[in-house]
């Protein structure tokens, strides 16, 4: 963390100086400002605000809206809802995990892709569905995945 990051965290902390139970609000602001809530951030907040690190860690691992590491360049959302599951969604997840070498909730080493599993993307008619950033792919087949990844900067 550099001085700029520390300044940002200090600002967030001072804006909640008089809030009762500010942990959740502080963490949400950190998530929006930095895109993730990392170990450095939480340790710094804990030291400055006297909120125990174990409590902050419990919160960020409980709620799905927090990330523990910076997100990749592209975010892959894969549906694990009923309809997609019935039409082979699980196979797509496995194939993506194999090609990228990461599981849901993780980011590739080169920071190109983050894999996230979601419950429903609202287009069950074209299941199984994969969403790359804001582009939706329907009736995805495991054999087509490499092609889709390539259009978004994958090898």
């Amino acid at each position: 963390m550099d001085a700029k990051d520390r300044k940002m965290l200090d600002d967030i902390l001072s804006s909640h100086r008089d809030t009762r139970d500010p942990a959740m609000l502080i963490l949400q602001k950190v998530q929006t400002s930095f895109g993730y809530t990392g170990q450095d951030h939480l340790t710094y907040i804990s030291e400055k605000s006297c909120i125990p690190l174990s409590k902050l860690y419990g919160i960020v691992t409980f709620y799905p809206s927090f990330r523990l590491s910076p997100p990749g360049k592209s975010i892959i959302r894969i549906c694990e809802g009923t309809s997609c599951h019935v039409r082979g969604g699980a196979r797509i997840v496995k194939e993506l995990e194999r090609q990228l070498g990461i599981g849901p909730g993780q980011t590739t080493k080169d920071r190109k892709f983050s894999l996230e599993s979601v419950r429903c993307l609202g287009c069950c008619g074209i299941s199984p569905v994969v969403m790359m950033d804001d582009k939706t792919y329907g009736r995805v087949k495991a054999t087509k995945l490499a092609e889709i990844l390539a259009t978004h900067g994958g090898e």
């Binding site: 939480l42 174990s54 691992t61 409980f62």
Partner: peptide, 27 residues
Amino acid sequence: VHAIAVANKGFASIMTTPFDIGMDNNK
């Protein structure tokens, strides 16, 4: 003392230390 944290939720929840840093490095 706040050395032990509960991470995740539901069946995935687990007793751990923050960021898995270990007891002694923690509080």
